[in-house]
Amino acid sequence: MTHAIDIRGLHYRAGRSFEIPSLDLRVPTGAIYGFLGPNGSGKTTTIRLVLGLLRPRAGDIRVLDRPMPRQAADVLARVGYVPEQPHLDPTLTVREAMRFQAAFYPTWDHAWAEELLVAFELDERRLFGKLSKGQKGKLMMLLALAQRPELLVLDEPTDGLDPVVRRDMLAALIDYVSEGGATVFISSHLVHELERMCDWIGVMDQGRLVTELPMERFKNGIKRLVVSGAPPAVAAPFSLLSRERNGAATETWLVRGWEPEMHAFFDSVGASLQRVIDLDLEDGFVELLRTFRTLPPRPEEVR
């Protein structure tokens, strides 16, 4: 099984306003795949479709090599889910919530659940409804991990939580993944958090997947070049996304697909390349969205 999640040609529509016209998304098995996108881009909807909580209009979704939502009941036994909004029974205590979950998952690891309970400093007798936001988040993480799933799907798990809680949750996640085999599909606003952990990145905007590639290629893909003396029109070996003047002397070019050998191109047009500025993931993400939104849609995307 090469891909833990394999989505092809997914079409989903909810009411008149929101639509995912055609989504192709693939999460390689064993990867930590970061799912980025602004609010309303369709990340949560995609996650719900992956888990079989929503039905698509058309297209194929395969999770752990099984079709969804048809085989949801079997697949979900091997998938750990940390939702955006924790929604357990508020009248159950932490211990009772653990017992409830454990009853449904044959792979439940009781010993490790106890370890996580201690590591997360959760009071087992506290009612779920009375937990703080951070404690709820940690409990959801505990419940998803103790199941020992093959695939972890996390929908903005650390959103709105303080740095200490975020650190604890992600450390536990990495700890689990280190044992090998598990795939992680995590959506988040916190770009820098994803930057450390993820080896794949997928960017979604307005119901479309903008790009999907290994983290290294994404980070190295978009750069800013400080250029002087370049003519107005150029045929560059890289993809020139934008040009901006910095005062009289130089311009800043936003480019994609830059390779270091390409500096020879500047000599050939009589310009001089002064600097190559790397963009961190957040800047790259912002720039990518900006260019994605200003470019006209490709013909096959128009319905």
Partner: peptide
Amino acid sequence: AAQLRVNPA
């Protein structure tokens, strides 16, 4: 990896 919260790879 857990301490630094980076990918184990």
